[in-house]
């Protein structure tokens, strides 16, 4: 283990880790937006909208995230979408994780007992009121933990943007492996930083989960 080398290059890795965090946060926000819209679409009363939601989930979960990213970044200009690598990374990964989050959010909503809607409707609430004041507050509690699993996958998934040359952790590790021929050291350095990010996120999710759970 070449400690001197690690001490020499770690500042670059820290900078890259910051970019990985930025990517993760933006992707998570976009993913949550897409996931909420997707879940709403999948639970819609209109068949056409349900179909759009189902197609979104099926297409984005049925093909590799890497291909989606390449299609957006390299193929986008052909259909008039010009994005830089970072933007393409956030949008591509966000749409991808959004499809997984759609299923998580939908799962949480449909696992709230049916009697809850019926009771709320009987009390004279409109369909929207029943959803807004009775169903969603209960569903939120159920979705925190599984969304945490999605976010964990998302953080590791940000490594994919290395393939379109965003200088995040994996790209940095790859570049230093190429120039120093020390794959193990670089892996440990990047790996430790990933695990710190994932561990901290996991703690945050657990905290939130405990906070919203009814004792």
């Amino acid at each position: 283990m070449d400690i001197d080398l690690i001490l020499r290059v770690y500042p670059h890795f820290l900078k890259a880790a910051v970019l990985t965090i930025e990517l993760s946060v933006l992707t998570a926000i976009l993913g949550l937006i897409c996931g909420s819209l997707g879940a709403a679409a999948r639970l819609s009363r209109l068949k056409a909208i349900r179909f759009i939601g189902a197609a979104y989930v099926s297409l984005f979960r049925g093909t590799p995230a890497l291909i989606q990213l390449f299609l957006l970044y390299f193929g986008g200009p052909q259909i008039g979408i010009q994005l830089d690598a970072f933007q393409a990374g956030v949008i591509g990964l966000g749409l991808n994780i959004g499809a997984y989050m759609t299923e998580t959010i939908r799962g949480a909503i449909i696992s709230v007992h049916k009697g809850q809607t019926e009771a709320a409707r009987t009390l004279g609430m409109s369909r929207w009121q029943a959803t807004r004041y009775v169903i969603l507050p209960q569903a939120f509690r159920l979705m925190v933990r599984p969304l945490g699993v999605n976010i964990n996958a998302l953080i590791k998934g940000t490594a994919l943007v290395a393939a379109i040359s965003v200088v995040e952790l994996t790209y940095t590790a790859q570049r230093y492996i190429g120039s120093t021929y020390k794959p193990f050291e670089m892996f440990i350095l990047a790996g430790v930083l990933y695990m710190i990010i994932i561990y901290a996120t996991g703690r945050g999710i657990s905290w939130l989960d405990k906070k919203v759970r009814i004792q």
Binding site: K156, A159, F187
Partner: peptide, 8 residues
């Protein structure tokens, strides 16, 4: 850690 990193 990400799969891509492990592959490298």
């Amino acid at each position: 850690t990400p799969l891509l990193l492990q592959l490298f």
